[in-house]
Nucleic acid binder design. Structure first.
Length: 874
RNA sequence: GGGUGUUUAGCUCAGUUGGUUUAGAGCGCUACCUUGACAGGGUAGAGGUCAUGGGUUCGAAUCCCUUAACACCCACCA
């Protein structure tokens, strides 16, 4: 066996083995199900650190459930990501010299599918490298036929229930992707801009008023000037009209309390086509709507000679012209928030358009109760409850239409001045004709009269059904899969999609299954670089995920990611974490090499081994209890750290060192057998974190039947804990450590046998067998009082003496003891201060007071022994 | 502008409803050791007035208030 663990060959060998044996596949049976649906990555995405963290956690949970003999089912898949994918396809076509506008819908979709097939498998293959134990036979794509049909079914259902409506509304327009976005897809950024003070002349020639605006290019859409009715500066101007500069259109001066008299000049220009608030005011006062922009954010004919110019190019030119006209009073620097597209980064243009909306007010109610009132769903960490609550309580209607082709086409069919919503053209025709008949019309419609809505649905309008539709629970709500696997168990995802996805899945879950989609939501942190910056392509600070696996091994990378990722806290990723994971893998590898190199012999088991193994069993059980508790709280990294220490410190450093036979000597059969059994239980506990290494060692540890795997081994049960033994072992460990320190300080040879004496004969706390093997001591001698020329070490209140001839440095020893004496005296004083405080003795609980009394007694005893030793040293 | 969270050893973080020694872990650091599992190792050690100021309490890293820095979320101020 090699002296170091070499992951690459082992990883590919076992992953293939697992797939071949179909160990990750799940079928409905009578066991308890444990289900996770993957947050579907973008179909054309590549694995990044966030995915790695996310999916490692899911794999840990699912592998543990599998070991607990649950029916573990992890459903993988990908998302069609309409805007992102369409943007990439458009860009590639452009490279090939093809403009999207020249293609028909069908032709374009053909290109999109080609692209999807080309890149679609990449990220799933990468997840396999990480060791993800998904049921690949269930791989689902949000554009699969049944997924597509589910979305259409839901759209029609919600429409018929009156939750979906079509409305002419101010929406967020992405001029680059030429589509609308939901409010959630708009990211506000602070940008430095200008505040332009523009003069609008009164039409009666009595001078001009000044309006402050950040967007002079929108003056072509101005339909009024609005002031606050309480503003004395303008009280006599109401009812007058002014000229819009450049176009010289006449507009009225109106008043509304919306206007803040303090801001700018107290005059607000009203441009209903280009601003949400202006639209509200326009509606209130029945003002005209003048849209001065084209869909690509260039100015249109309303802007006269600026027609065709981009909005940002036009802005300074308009300012120049105003300057020339003497109408630009001043320009001030102004910091304002600009909405940008999450996908393309383009500055969002508010625009009035016909769009489809989902009414949220009613749908959202059970989703609020589920998390905040009934506790049916728990968020981990729970600090996200507030964020969740705030969003749901202030939710607005969801714009679900997108002006794209890649996605589920909205099943609305227009004819004459109306429309029907239907699954297919045939059904739409039927409906249209039925309706005509109802209205006593003789008109018969044909396919040529109907035109399907060109738009597709928001990507999230398909992924919000994911936990239901992957089990076909929309189209066949009573099929046995959905009834068995749903509600799923845990969801693991990033907090950045809490609203986009998590909240909406909860909403759809209650609407379509009358219950929650998952019981627990584990929100991971964002993966940042060492300097705390978000990992991003543009910064180039994201390590190559697969490169890390190549360098350190998948197990090491998994451990590295988990070691410092408390739920919900961001994690600063550093490659040294992977090194730590790799070192751990190597440590286990070598522990395995050690025990398997032992030759077993039919000899009596040494007492030390018996005690050591009993101690380790107790330690194991105690740690297992702790680990179970950490899992229950979704504290995965703490569970891993406890296991790390159990293996490295307790198993390797203490137990194996204790039972290790002398060089080239055999070990007794019983010890060998027990060491193997313990190793096997540790491997099972470790398997969810390090699947490859544990499989390799588990297979080598014993002759396994054909086709067996640690993946489906049994999770260990906790057993009795011998607490007094743990106490004595700890005491012995402390004494051994103290001796090691002493040897180092006094330059005594590390393995030189020492004699140990102690006065405490009544209850010997030390385990002599362990002490003599690991502390290199002869048997312990009980003495009446310390002799001359001894060194002393103390564990708790017990003093141990080591006779050491005349060579000891008395001064040094005295100094050390004096220091300790001072500390103990100071400590005793603090405790006594409490104990002499009547209010403490009366007020504090009895056990606390008793504990303080014990401290005082212990300290006194220590002081006494130190003083005796000091007096001996003279 | 509103909200939430964070601030504990050089770094990353624990610290569970205030009370087991005048605070813990992992990594890093320092010294020494190391030819019998592992130098990707062993042993030991050093490192913190728990962000600030105040308050409650017999007792505060822990509860309350002030201030500061940082992070995230939400919001239509031209």
């Amino acid at each position: 066996m090699e002296t170091a663990y070499n992951p690459s060959a082992i990883e590919s060998k076992w992953y293939a083995y697992w797939l071949e044996r179909k160990l990750f596949e799940s079928k409905v049976d009578d066991r308890e199900p444990y289900t996770i649906v993957i947050p579907p990555p973008n179909v054309t995405g590549v694995l990044h650190m966030g995915h790695m963290l996310n999916n490692t956690i899911q794999d840990v949970l699912i592998r543990r459930a599998r070991l607990q003999q649950k029916n573990a089912c992890w459903v993988p898949g990908t998302d069609h990501a309409s805007i992102a994918t369409e943007a990439k396809v458009v860009a590639r076509l452009k490279q090939q010299g093809i403009a999207k506008e020249t293609l028909s819908r069908e032709e374009f979709l053909k290109h999109a599918w080609d692209w999807t097939e080309e890149y679609g498998g990449v990220i799933l293959a990468q997840l396999k490298r990480l060791g993800a134990s998904c049921d690949w036979s269930r791989t689902t794509f949000t554009m699969d036929q049944h997924m597509y049909d589910s979305v259409i079914e839901v759209f029609i259902d919600l429409y018929e229930k009156g939750h979906i409506y079509r409305g002419y509304r101010m929406v967020n327009w992405d001029p680059e992707a030429k589509t609308t976005l939901s409010d959630e897809e708009v990211i506000y950024q602070e940008r430095e801009g200008n505040l332009y003070y523009i003069q609008y002349a009164y039409t009666d020639g009595s001078g001009a008023l000044t309006v402050a605006t950040t967007r002079p290019e929108t003056i072509f859409g101005d339909v009024a000037i609005c002031v606050n009715p309480e503003d004395p500066r303008y009280s006599d101007k109401l009812g007058k009209t002014v000229f819009v500069p450049i176009v010289n259109r006449e507009i009225p001066i109106i008043s509304d309390t919306y206007v803040d008299a303090e801001f700018g000049t107290g005059c607000l220009k009203i441009t209903p086509a280009h601003d949400q608030n202006d639209k509200a005011i326009g509606d209130k006062y029945n003002l005209e709507i003048i849209d001065a922009l084209n869909s690509d954010a260039t100015l249109n004919a309303h802007a006269l000679h600026y027609e065709g110019l981009d909005r940002f190019e036009a802005r300074p030119k308009i300012a120049e012209e105003l300057q020339a006209l003497g109408l630009l009073l001043k320009v001030e620097k102004h910091l304002n928030k600009v909405g940008t597209s999450e996908r393309t980064g383009a500055v969002i243009e508010p625009r009035l358009l016909d769009q489809w909306f989902l009414k949220m007010e009613e749908l959202v109610k059970p989703a609020i109760d589920a998390v905040l009132k009934n506790g049916e769903i728990k968020l981990h960490p729970s600090k996200f409850d507030n964020t969740y609550k705030h969003w749901l309580e202030n939710i607005r209607d969801w714009n679900i239409s997108r002006q794209l082709w890649w996605g589920q086409q909205i099943p609305a069919f227009y004819y004459d001045n109306t429309f029907v919503v239907a699954k297919s053209l045939e059904e739409a025709l039927e409906k249209a004709n039925e309706r005509a008949a109802e209205q006593q019309s003789n008109k018969r419609y044909t396919a040529a009269d109907l035109r399907q809505d060109e738009d597709v649905l928001d990507t999230w309008f398909s992924s919000w059904l994911w936990p239901i539709s992957v089990f076909n629970g929309i189209l066949e709500p009573d099929n046995k899969e959905i009834n068995y696997y749903y509600p799923t168990s845990d969801l693991v995802t990033g907090p950045d999609i809490l609203f986009f996805w998590v909240a909406r899945m909860i909403i759809s879950g209650y609407e379509y299954r009358k219950t929650y989609p998952f019981k627990n939501v584990y929100l991971t942190g964002l993966v940042r670089d060492k300097q705390g910056r978000k990992m991003s392509k543009s910064l180039g600070n994201s390590p190559d995920a697969l490169g890390l696996i190549d360098t350190y091994g998948a197990d090491a990378v998994r451990v590295g990611l988990l070691l410092s990722s408390a739920a919900g806290n961001d994690l600063l990723f550093d490659e040294s974490l992977c090194q730590q994971g790799r070192n751990f893998a190597n440590k286990i590898w070598n522990a395995f090499r050690l025990i398997t190199s032992w030759e077993g012999a039919p000899i009596a088991q040494p007492e030390a081994n018996k005690i050591g193994i009993e101690w380790f069993n107790s330690q194991f059980n105690s740690t297992l209890d702790f680990i179970e508790d950490q899992y229950a709280k979704y504290r995965i990294s703490d569970a891993l750290m406890a296991l790390y220490k159990l293996i490295w410190d307790d198993y390797c450093s203490w137990l194996l060192e204790l039972i290790k036979p002398a060089y080239q000597q055999p070990v007794d059969e019983a010890t060998k057998k027990e060491a193997f059994e313990l190793m096997e239980r540790l491997l099972v506990l470790l398997h969810p974190f390090m699947p490859f290494l544990t499989e390799e060692l588990w297979q080598q540890l014993d002759a396994r039947p054909e086709g067996s795997s640690i993946c489906v081994a049994h999770w260990p049960q906790s057993g009795p804990i011998n607490q007094p033994l743990i106490g004595r072992f700890n005491h012995t460990q402390s004494l051994i450590s103290a001796l090691r320190t002493m040897r180092k300080e006094k330059h005594i040879k590390p393995k030189e046998i020492l004699e140990i004496q102690t006065q405490k004969s009544d209850h010997l706390l030390v385990i002599p067998e362990v002490l003599s093997k690991l502390g290199f001591t002869s048997s312990i001698e009980i003495i009446e009082s310390a002799g001359d020329n001894t060194l002393s070490v103390r564990v708790e209140t017990t003093e141990y003496y080591i006779p050491f001839g005349t060579q000891i440095n008395v001064e040094e020893e005295v100094e050390k003891l004096q220091k300790e004496l001072t500390y103990q005296k100071g400590f005793l004083e603090i405790v006594n201060r409490k104990l002499t405080n009547k209010r403490f003795v009366d007020g504090a609980p009895d056990e606390v007071v008793a504990a303080e009394r014990k401290k005082a007694a212990d300290a006194q005893e220590k002081i006494q022994t130190i003083e005796i030793t000091l007096s001996k040293l003279g």
